[in-house]
Every structure is written in structure tokens, then in C-alpha cells.
Amino acid sequence: MKPIGEPYRFHGASKYVLDDELAKIVNVSMALEMPLLLKGEPGTGKTMLAYAIAESLAMPLIVLNVKSSMKLLDALYQYDTLTRLNDSRFGDSKRDVSNIEEYIRMGKIGQAFVSDCRTVLLIDEIDKADTDFQDDMLDVLDQMQFDIMEIDKTVTAKNRPVIIITSNAKKDLSDPFLGRCNFHHIAFPDPEMMRMILNVHFPDLSEELARASLLTFYRLREFRGIEKKPATRELINWVRALQSDPDFVVKTLENGEIPYLGVLFKKSLDLNLALQQAGRARK
């Protein structure tokens, strides 16, 4: 075995609470130069992880937000025909109209490839795209190069980006796709972990408020029939709301009353259900 000579090691960033397991997986994926696929309930910090990695490795972050209508080409490059047409007609720009390369714009993946320093490339919510997009994209990421057809040129990555891919869906991605990624499933944080997350976001949070709000929060997550359960983001917003309300006292929570339910439940059906069940709990 050769000594660990890796220049980049990931330890966690200022606003993101990272557990050991995840840190190890990130490090292994970086060493193997493989994309890391993160799955998990919404609100478990999949997207935040990429931000944290970028911050702690001091690399620029490039985010590709996948949309259902997206073509792979959009993520690689774009040939700006309209500008070229305009330039050829009016000729008042400094661009050379006969040189097509000047009208090629890099997409997000392209940007990560041509960047002069190593970057973190976050491909967010890959499950929105269709399977063709997913497979083709991994081909590109595997080979670290793609062709620009219009000018017959191959773009090769100067630096292999650190690739993080996130997926919300419970539906499995295709086998070839999975085969080329490292996989991790982020479980919903347990109360202890959540406490640490709260501490990071609210350094001056009082002990009793933290305890009471977490207790209520995890009780709310147990409610039946809720379609979109409140997650970390909702909890943080909720605690912020509680803190900023001058009339709020921790006693309220202990009495079973829950102010600002609307911050926690975003769908009207969910909110109604939660109101009913919260009301029942109080009696």
C-alpha cells in the first residue's frame, strides 16, 4: 500500500454537520475518482453536502440543476446561432463571425471541464431527467471528455471535478448508471444529530427551547397521513420563527401548543391533518 498522499481531504464545513460515515465515503469517492450518488429524503442535506465539500476543499462549486426537459447537450455546450446571425448581419461586435468557436458557450459540465482549477460539480436531482440523459451523461463523466460537433473539437477535462449527484426519487436509477457511481443513502438525522445541526445554525439557542422544539418536531414527524413531512429546512425556519416572536415562551410548546404550523407543513392538506392531530394531542 502506498502512503496516503492525497492533497484533498474532506473534513466538514462551517455550516454543515457531517457525520463520520459520510466523510469517509466522500474521501473514498474522491480517491477512486468516482461520482458520488446521494439519495435520501428531501431535507437530509444532500445538496448542502456539495456546498460544504466545495467550501472545505476551497474549490469553486458548479451547480447543474437538472430539469425534466433537459438535453445532455444543454449541460455540455450551446451553439449560440442567434448571436452569430445577428453579428453576421450587423457586424458591430468584436467576434469573428467566421469562427464558430466564438459562439460556443459552455454548459455547466463544460464549465467544470475547462476550469483552470479543480471544481466541485453538483448535479442536482438527476432523477428528474430521463434515463437516456442519465446514461449519456455518465459516459461523458467517465471519459472526462466530449465533442463539440459544430467545430469538430474535443473538450477534455483539465482537472477531474469532484462530482456529487443527488436524487430524491425512491425509484431506482438504471443499473449502468448505478454501476458507475458510489452510492450513499442519507438517513434522516436522529435527534442528537439534529441538535448539532441546530447548534450550528443557532449558536445562541437556549437549551430548553432546543429540547422542546426538537421534541415537538419529531412528534410532528410521526403524524399519520402527512405527505410531505417537515424536514431539516422546515425545522430551522420554524425555530427562527419561534425565536423572533417576542410573545413566544417555551412553556407553550411544553403545553402541547404548536405555533406557526404553517412553517412546518407546506401543503394545505398536510396542514389540516396536522392541525387536527395536534389538537387531539392537546386534549
Partner: peptide, 30 residues
């Protein structure tokens, strides 16, 4: 084979590391 590569790269130093690394490399669904 990728797991073997990870082992030879020296990023897996203990059985704990092996547990997490092997899972992320071998197992693709929760």
C-alpha cells in the same frame, strides 16, 4: 475490483472504513 483499488490506494485504514467504503462502492440501493 473497484473496492480492491480503493484498498490498494490506502484510503481504507480500518474495518470501520471498510464497512462504509465497501458499502458505498458495492451496494447501490438503500
Amino acid at each position: 475490483l473497484r473496492l480492491q483499488k480503493a484498498l490498494s490506494l490506502g484510503v481504507i485504514g480500518s474495518i470501520d472504513d471498510f464497512y462504509t467504503a465497501a458499502r458505498s462502492i458495492l451496494v447501490k440501493s438503500e
